[in-house]
Amino acid sequence: MKRRTLLAGAAALRLVAVIRPASAQLREMRMVESGGKSGESIDVGYAAPFTAKTGIRLVRESPGNLGKLQAMIASGRITAASFELGSGTMVQARKLGLIEKLDWAAINPMPMFPEAKNEFGFGYQYFSTIMAWRKAAKAPQNWVDFFNTKDFPGKRAIPDYPAYAIAFALLSEGVPQDKLFPLDVDRGLKKLLSIRRDISVLWKAGAQAPQLLKDNEVQYAIAWSGRVVEEPDLAYSFNGGMADLSFICTVKGAPKAEQEAMNKLYYEMSVPENQAKAAGVIAYTGPSPALDPLLPKDKIGMFPTAKANKDVQWVQNAEWWAENGESANKKWEEFKLSL
């Protein structure tokens, strides 16, 4: 009995040895990201050149959320070196000490937009929250039109995320883009409530918005840009849209070798040619100011960072949401109950 246990133990040790080769020779590295086309674009744009240069394979895992990251740190078993986080959740993760500070000198990236070069994360992917509508419906020019349900009749679908919905209501009330924050949540919700009869769906999954439009369940929607720009039946406008960033962050306590490898991956993510390849998979763009000329001419209007689009948008204030998200969410739940 004892003997068998010992043998089993020895076998287990050997197994561990196989899984974790000497840290000198890193063969693969894990990343938790949001999956789908976005994950594919990481493979095509960044993992491919990274693996070609270093011989390290990037294994993707999805989906991820803050709870999963927190559980990973709490359990002490760091199974992934990097984690994709939204701008707001990255601030939370930073406050909770779940992610490493980045060594930008070691990364030595090519030029990038300043908001993407965060102390704790690499803003690798811009995505916009914009208005979209069925081509058959009357086209709104701005958020005032979008919230004018009398002259622009039709059902609306809006995100079931306060951070992606409330600000647009304030824009329709005439609040200028640069004066949105601190956000007047009560005023925004009041505006939303005023059109509650026309709000048909609060969507949770990004794919819902285009589907609802195509099914004619709603005629207007607030949607994530990458989900609507390539739909032939739908029209969209970046005017007054919100640019936001997805970040890749290094997980707190990841092995040194993996952290160093991550720096090399971050560098690949800053190369505009690589970003252009990623944008070929999904209509979201990387943080390089030099990206526009590399993008296909006929599709330039689809991308969040194309000059014409970036100029008419405003950038999400993740810090404000990290501070006020919970109280705003309470009000959001209240709003939903009174719909």
Binding site: L66, G67, Q70, T89, Q92, G325, E326, N329
Partner: peptide
């Protein structure tokens, strides 16, 4: 889900 995954207020 919001309390656990969006803003960790466990």
């Amino acid at each position: 889900d919001f309390l656990i995954n969006q803003i960790p207020r466990w």
